[in-house]
């Protein structure tokens, strides 16, 4: 794909989750993030959640593959994100993205939106053309 990105261009929306207990446990094991908030329903309930929240980093892990599938000619230079609202085990979300700025680099706002009012993840990615692309 060689057509240049322009401000306002949108990524295709992709589904994220839902994640079950086994998926969250697998992420905890592989990442080493065994924060009991994600694994212990009783602790999650004490924190006010109906079910344990999925690791925010598990959601963030969806972004780079989605960007690469959309624009295989671009490399990821920076990825930053804020975990705004939890996405609980069993809840589905949608990843979407839009180009905010184009200059030497391309700034893409990426959102993982679950069932709550606010997004579960509000992220920004900076893309640069791959060498030789």
């Amino acid at each position: 794909m060689t057509n240049p990105l322009a401000r306002g261009d949108k990524m295709p929306e992709t589904p994220v989750g839902p994640f079950d207990v086994a998926a969250v446990a697998a992420y905890a094991a592989a990442s080493g993030d065994d924060n009991p908030l994600h694994l212990d329903p009783a602790l999650a309930a004490r924190a006010g959640f109906a079910a344990p929240p999925v690791h925010g980093m598990r959601l963030m892990a969806e972004i780079a593959p989605a960007l690469a599938a959309w624009r295989p000619d671009m490399a990821l230079k920076r990825l930053t994100g804020t975990f705004v609202e939890p996405l609980l085990i069993g809840e589905a979300a949608t990843l979407s993205g839009r180009v905010l700025r184009v200059d030497d680099e391309i700034l893409v706002r990426v959102t993982v939106q679950g069932p709550r009012r606010g997004p579960s993840l509000l992220a920004e990615a900076i893309l640069v053309p791959k060498e030789g692309a």
């Binding site: 592989a30 990442s31 080493g32 598990r58 963030m60 892990a61 972004i63 593959p65 990825l79």
Partner: peptide, 29 residues
């Protein structure tokens, strides 16, 4: 490989968020 499997990434790639694993090294944790 374990991390890539857990995040559904393609085998043979290093997921962009893989370095988060390093913060779970026992001494650092």
């Amino acid at each position: 490989q374990a991390f890539a499997t857990a995040v559904g990434a393609r085998a043979g790639e290093i997921p962009a968020t893989f370095p988060i694993v390093w913060l779970s090294a026992p001494a650092l944790k």
